[in-house]
């Protein structure tokens, strides 16, 4: 089973659940951020940095980027295993798909590291 090794939860059921929980977290975050921006039309850097370096907000942001990572991993896995198949791509499909999946996983991990770097580098006073 070379191919299922690249799925995140190793089983369809746990992937399905992670996909839902992560969708829920991301939606909550999106509603919060959009609500905040709409309610603060004259937002300044100081206010924005203050908000984002507060520990609860960092945790919320971190939780969200981890949700994005898990969700994107599972979602892209679904798409790749649907289209990069022997029927659609030819006999090299499995090799090609593994390359794409590893690339996708690498980008996902880079996103997480980038986000952590942003969140833990915030300077309120510029």
């Amino acid at each position: 089973m070379v191919t299922t090794v690249t799925s995140l939860g190793r089983s369809g059921l746990s992937d399905w659940l992670i996909q839902r929980v992560s969708a829920f977290v991301m939606t909550a975050y999106l509603i919060f951020i959009v609500g905040y921006l709409v309610m603060n039309p004259e937002l300044t850097y100081a206010q924005w940095a203050q908000l984002n370096q507060a520990l609860p907000m960092r945790m919320f942001s971190l939780l969200t980027i981890l949700s994005i990572a898990a969700h994107a991993w599972i979602g892209m896995w679904c798409v790749l295993t649907d289209y990069v198949t022997v029927r659609l791509v030819g006999p090299k499909a499995t090799a090609i798909r593994i390359v794409f999946q590893l690339g996708m996983i690498a980008i996902t991990l880079l996103y997480v590291i980038w986000a952590i770097d942003i969140l833990w580098g915030i300077q309120v006073n510029g």
């Binding site: 850097y45 924005w48 984002n52 979602g75 892209m76 996103y111 980038w114 986000a115 942003i118 580098g121």
Partner: peptide, 26 residues
């Protein structure tokens, strides 16, 4: 969903710039 996978880079870039410094925010 596939577009979003790449759009995450755009969101992080905006987020990064907006929090890097007052100049970045502007």
């Amino acid at each position: 969903g596939v577009i979003l996978f790449f759009a995450v880079a755009v969101f992080l870039w905006l987020f990064d710039a907006s929090l890097s410094s007052p100049e970045g925010f502007e």
